[in-house]
Simulated assay, not measured.
Amino acid sequence: MAQFFGQVYSNVETSSKVLAYASDNVLFDKLVTLDSALTADLVVGSVVDATGALATSTDDLSVVLSPAFAGQTYIRVARAPHVMLIASELVFDSSLTKEAVVSALESAGYVFSDFSTVALRTT
């Protein structure tokens, strides 16, 4: 059992589940303050909209990096372009397809790497 943010859970995922690489240890994430409290728990890798709910469209998407619990008014999300995400670890609403989510996140500046692809940005 792990204690995370004052709550006890038997399985706690961390940002390394969805992050393949972070180019900057300070700028790779950001805290988003929500207008209203979360209505459901979110796991690491959840693809959310601006309200913090699982996204049902490909507009204004973010990827959650820390577990978030119902009632919270903030979430920790990945910040493009400082991260490389693992597409196979994304959690999204069943109304969306993986291809649509990845395409929308790529157009927002995110980069992806999976087991068959290794692509690190260089300067």
Rank of each mutant, 00 (worst) to 15 (best):
E89M: 14
S88C: 12
G109L: 00
D59M: 09
A68G: 10
F69I: 10
F69H: 13
R121E: 15
T56Q: 15
A78S: 11
D29Q: 10
G109F: 05
T97F: 13
T122P: 02
Y110T: 01
F69K: 14
F115S: 09
S57C: 08
Y21E: 15
M1W: 14
A100M: 07
F5M: 09
V64Y: 05
S116A: 12
S62M: 12
F5H: 10
S113E: 15
V12A: 08
A55I: 02
V48F: 01
A119F: 11
L85I: 11
F112A: 06
A53H: 07
A100D: 15
F5Y: 12
A108G: 09
F69C: 03
A37T: 04
Y74N: 05
V32G: 04
V48S: 06
G71T: 02
T51V: 08
V44P: 00
H82Y: 12
D24H: 08
A80V: 00
A55D: 01
Q7M: 12
S88E: 15
A80L: 10
V44F: 04
D41P: 05
R121D: 15
S95M: 04
Q72A: 12
S66F: 09
V77W: 09
S36F: 04
D114Q: 07
V64K: 01
Y9E: 08
D59R: 02
L96S: 05
F92L: 00
V48T: 12
A78M: 00
T123Y: 10
V47R: 00
L90I: 00
E99Q: 13
V101W: 06
D60N: 14
M84W: 07
F28W: 11
F5L: 11
A2E: 11
T97E: 09
S46I: 00
E89R: 14
A22N: 10
T56A: 04
D49F: 05
